[in-house]
Simulated scan of single mutants.
Amino acid sequence: MAEMQVDLVAVERKVWSGTAEFVFARTSVGEIGILPRHEPLIAQLVDAGMVRIDPSDGESVRVAVFGGFLSMDGEKLTILAEEAELGDQIDVSAAQQDRDRADTDDAAGRAAKARAEARLAAAGQAAE
């Protein structure tokens, strides 16, 4: 099976690195699925979204990402996020509280709710 090198890096640290068969991400122009040998591209990530990496060996890795870009050169996919959090490290109850407390009457509240929902998606929690 074909593989590609994937590096997901946040400003403060490398979040995940390895070989993968597929990556799903939400960009500013829509959702994208990337397979090995995908045509070269650069895309802006949504402000609050979830990236799913299907490694060559093992279970899918879900990551909440907040802003940034991805770049594919055909052999290697690099995801540069402003912030990122692995799904298995997310405090689900705190994210649910953040979502429930968010005041969607203003832009800051809508952004807070979107961040909480991205964290819940990465943690494998269905939206309510």
Rank of each mutant, 00 (worst) to 15 (best):
A126R: 15
T19W: 07
A25T: 06
V15N: 13
P36N: 09
H38Y: 11
E3W: 05
M50K: 09
V63E: 09
L120F: 03
R115I: 06
A48D: 12
E21K: 15
P36W: 02
A94F: 06
M50W: 00
D88A: 02
T27H: 07
K76A: 15
L8C: 09
F24N: 11
D47C: 01
A126P: 15
I90N: 00
G49A: 03
D100F: 02
G87E: 00
M50H: 04
S60G: 12
D88L: 01
A122W: 03
E59F: 03
G87L: 03
A108V: 04
A84V: 06
G74T: 05
A118V: 07
D106N: 11
D47T: 01
T19M: 15
G124E: 05
A116Y: 05
L70K: 04
L70A: 13
S17L: 08
Q89F: 02
A64H: 00
R101A: 10
I32A: 11
A48S: 12
Q125G: 01
R37M: 13
D7E: 14
R13G: 11
E117N: 09
Q44E: 12
K14E: 14
A2Q: 09
V46C: 13
E117C: 09
P36V: 12
A95M: 02
A94K: 12
V61I: 15
D105E: 05
D54H: 12
D88R: 00
L86Q: 10
L120K: 03
V46L: 14
S17E: 15
I90M: 05
A123E: 01
V6M: 05
D88S: 03
E12Q: 12
D100T: 04
D98L: 10
A116R: 05
A123R: 00
A43V: 01
V11E: 13
E39I: 10
E83G: 03
I42G: 11
A108W: 00
I79R: 10
T19L: 15
L41Q: 10
V92H: 03
V15H: 12
A122R: 00
E3C: 10
D73K: 08
A127G: 08
L77S: 10
E3T: 08
A102W: 05
T104H: 05
L70S: 13
D57A: 14
D47G: 07
S17H: 13
G30E: 07
Q96R: 13
L70G: 13
L70W: 04
G58V: 02
I79C: 09
I90T: 01
Q97Y: 05
P36M: 11
A126C: 13
A123S: 03
D103V: 00
L41Y: 01
A107S: 00
F69K: 10
L41P: 03
A114L: 06
R26Q: 14
L8T: 02
S56L: 11
A25F: 09
A64F: 03
T19G: 14
